[in-house]
Design a protein around this nucleic acid. Sequence first.
DNA 1: TATTGTTATACTCTATAACTATA
DNA 2: TATAGTTATAGAGTATAACAATA
Lengths: 164, 164
Amino acid sequence: MNDALEPRQLEAYFVLMEAVSLLQHSVEQQLRTEGGISYVQFQLLARLAAVDEPLTMTQLADGVVYSRSAVTYQAAQLEEAGLITRASSPDDERATLVTITAAGRALVDRVLPGHVQVIRPMLFDPLTDEDLDQLGHIMTRVRDHMRAQPPRSASRRRPTKPSP
Amino acid sequence: MNDALEPRQLEAYFVLMEAVSLLQHSVEQQLRTEGGISYVQFQLLARLAAVDEPLTMTQLADGVVYSRSAVTYQAAQLEEAGLITRASSPDDERATLVTITAAGRALVDRVLPGHVQVIRPMLFDPLTDEDLDQLGHIMTRVRDHMRAQPPRSASRRRPTKPSP
DNA sequence: TATTGTTATACTCTATAACTATA
DNA sequence: TATAGTTATAGAGTATAACAATA
């Protein structure tokens, strides 16, 4: 058992990261220019629009991985921009329910075409439909596998101190 | 011709971005913890180690996309940490040649095993060798295609002001 | 006691524009 | 005049830890 991966595997990883970085960079500019939002903010809005019901801060964070304070920060930005509202949950007074506003939905709808126009030439044009299908399948498997086992190092909430 | 993509295409894109974000996050923590460097810094060092010869700041930037000032900033960090050296080029006095130090190589070698240990369970374990091959081929095609046509919006150097 | 979320703070990183120096 | 790189500055985003309130 060797700790080193086959060079080809490592190469696939590096190329994956590089290509996505390029894509992310372009997409970020488009969102900033046309919508005045970051990619993270777009993700949060898109998620809220997709599920079509209020989410708690924790649920919202679950989709984007970051720390609680980062979500609070982003939510504050989005709320200030009138794209979401926050209200404490009737079920659990500790929780904050985040709801996307009409303006929020409108923004997502407004930036999506331009978003696609950036993605298409970069990601879709060079690939066949079959490639895209495979890519989708592969990354879905990867994503689901990642979500299934919470990363050892990045626990959402500081684990309780082991009895000292 | 419709501006909207097939939902499945868009889905593949979103999953791709999500999975890579998760991967990036984990990898970033590993590099920070075990090497005290960011992923960008790791990329720069790995690139210098791979080509095995000095690169100019511009050449270095080409691999990582960012603005000139960002490269200067990162190079300053790496130089301060003793991982690279900078010296003006004999060929072109304007250029700065960046050379990786022994400590820089040592650091890359030192963090790479841990890096792989993070990647393996997240990316490689859930995929067959064939999947990985396909992923590599697909993303290589995407990457090469992206590099072939410089993004319209993100010119490396501010284009000359159109004759006013 | 554990969990949800917020806040204060410090830090990293990035982009813009102005600047120097060389080609 | 254009290019390589640096610098000053300002802004966005993140994480940590301490905190308040609820379960």
